[in-house]
Write a protein that binds this DNA or RNA. Structure first.
Lengths: 341, 341
DNA sequence: TTGTACGCGTTATCAC
DNA sequence: GTGATAACGCGTACAA
């Protein structure tokens, strides 16, 4: 590994000069020496040690991302958004799966700190009454004091800027769409219990039903964010007729689970019942699922920019809400025979 | 940020002693000083700088992973396997999306080198007659010379250990299964053109058909690894009857695309035609797709272990083949009325 | 068993 | 314009 001293020596200049040339410093350098340094650096295949550089500058070009599970398409899209702007700006992405554990988040945050990451993006949602939330907040504070920028991708009371989507509104909008199609009795398959994002979506659903005077026609079922949960919840629904007019799942994967359960039971979608989800993951396109497109990629990208752009103030804990978009597809249709109210 | 010197000072010992205690060195240390150092480090919230540590030890606890696209479930599962063993061993995962570009791979490899990664896992497949392959091989050699361990997750002639699945055999096995169900005329939807993994799968299919004396009944269609490609290829198939007995897609996502095209055209699967894929991604479970389960997670995990376990020789470029498993599900069935040969 | 001092590869401050 | 030299925070050979 050729170091700066070697380059300097070979070029017949001092390390300082070599450094100045190679870092593109504004310090005045004669054209000839500059050329010479560049040439020898090139020929020696010199590549600066990001480690040494980070050690002295006290900050690296590392961007940390904490996701619950990268296999979950929700998070992989976010990670992709992060990495795209990161790599374009000469940064690297450090990824960690924390499996919805706040303790693990704290732990990984520490690791990112040990590497003097320029910033860390916390992508996972928090939990209602999370006993470890204060610890996380403390760790976040500690991390920020050290000059590391933080961004949360969900509304989480841990004292850092937020770049997110409006889960409440997204659920509200898709519910409204269902209602506009003539559906009245709508079942909502909830996300994981206690998760803030789950709750926001459920409340968005409930609020919309309430606003439409359909509070009594709303039904919530425990579920989860995965296929199995959506499937199971729907099976319970099928076992206790009559079926609702429509089913809204807390996310797309659960919605697909519901769809499958329905079709396996010989129930026509959207003929007999409509199904919708939230997120607009790839699988939603595959099955033609009506859903709400959440700006996942853009959330990751914007969070990354927020960290990289040193022009913006790091202090102010702003909240940025990126917009979602209703995506009607083939699993929803106008209700055939409206109920007499 | 408290440094080692501060801890040492506060504990009333020298930096070396503090270092020895905190790194768990085998160097003899009196119980009392050890306790004292640990206590003060604890109270000061000391956390060693991974940067400084890596700088002096010339290797960090960073594990690089180069994937084509983390949004692709094939790669996210691999990444998860890597990160799980990495984090368990106190390592961090550095992720980079290279979008199937060899040049980008070289570039990111360089970045990982700049951070003195302990090792780098190259997950993406190479291309037949890739003009940049020699450059990559050169970069790999260069990287290894520097003590960075490398593992490729596909058969790629770049001079590094390989941990992979047998794509040829996987395709062969699933084809054999199709044949055993009575299918004769089988269409194969190819993966991306020029990709080595694609080619291996196609040849596995072709070899099996040949072995079964069905070379003439084999049909290959250009396709791709995504839903759209599978869908489009199948539409072409539908447009030129008669339909084959079965369709094998180069991967699950394309198979699901085929499945959707078929069903949209009102063709019953598996009643009229069988469909199968390769990989066993989550979506395959959702739709009940018959496929071959590839040890993606385990490939990532094993590659990570290969890098972390310093007991194993780094020099020998071994090739480890992890086993796959046939997974018959609901998209394949016995052929109803066998053709008269 | 403990301490001293050097080096890892850079950047930055200061003098020339 | 150019060049020493001091950090950055740590591991470690060498000395005590």
């Amino acid at each position: 590994m050729t170091s700066l001293v070697e380059v300097a020596k070979a070029a017949g200049v001092s390390v300082s000069t070599a450094s100045r040339v190679l870092t593109g410093s504004s310090h005045p350098i004669s054209a000839k020496t500059r050329a010479k340094v560049i040439a020898t650096a090139e020929s020696l295949g010199y590549s600066p040690s990001a480690l040494a550089r980070a050690l002295v500058s006290r900050t690296s070009r590392v961007l940390g991302v904490l996701v619950s599970d990268i296999v979950n398409p929700y998070f992989s899209v976010i990670a992709r958004g992060v990495d795209d702007v990161a790599s374009r700006a000469g940064y690297v992405t450090m990824l960690s799966n924390v499996d919805r554990s706040t303790l693990t988040e704290i732990n990984r945050l520490q690791t990112m700190r040990d590497y003097r990451a320029a910033g860390v993006i916390i992508a996972g949602s928090g939990y209602v009454d999370d006993p470890h939330a204060p610890e996380l907040a403390e760790a976040v504070r500690h991390t920020r004091d050290q000059g590391i920028r933080l961004v949360s991708l969900t509304v989480r009371d841990i004292g850092c800027p937020i770049v997110t989507a409006d889960n409440h509104a997204a659920a509200h909008d898709i519910t409204e769409h269902l209602i506009s199609l003539g559906h009245r009795r709508i079942a909502f398959i909830e996300g994981p219990g206690g998760m803030v994002t789950s709750r926001q979506r459920r409340e968005g659903f409930l609020a919309c039903m309430s606003d439409a005077g359909l509070a009594d026609a709303a039904q919530c079922l425990p579920g989860g964010f995965d296929h199995e949960a959506g499937h199971a919840a729907t099976m319970r629904l099928i076992a206790r007729p009559p079926l609702p007019d429509a089913i809204l799942a807390a996310n797309d994967e659960a919605a697909v689970g519901a769809l499958n359960a329905l079709r396996q039971a010989g129930i026509d979608v959207p003929g007999e019942i409509s199904v919708a989800g939230i997120d607009d993951l790839r699988v939603a396109q595959f099955v033609g699922l009506t859903t709400v497109s959440l700006p996942l990629y853009e959330m990751g990208a914007m969070a990354a920019r927020h960290i990289i752009d040193t022009t913006t103030e790091p202090g102010k804990p702003t909240t940025t809400i990126l917009s979602h978009r209703l995506l009607p597809r083939e699993t929803t249709a106008r209700r055939p025979s409206p109920t007499s109210a």
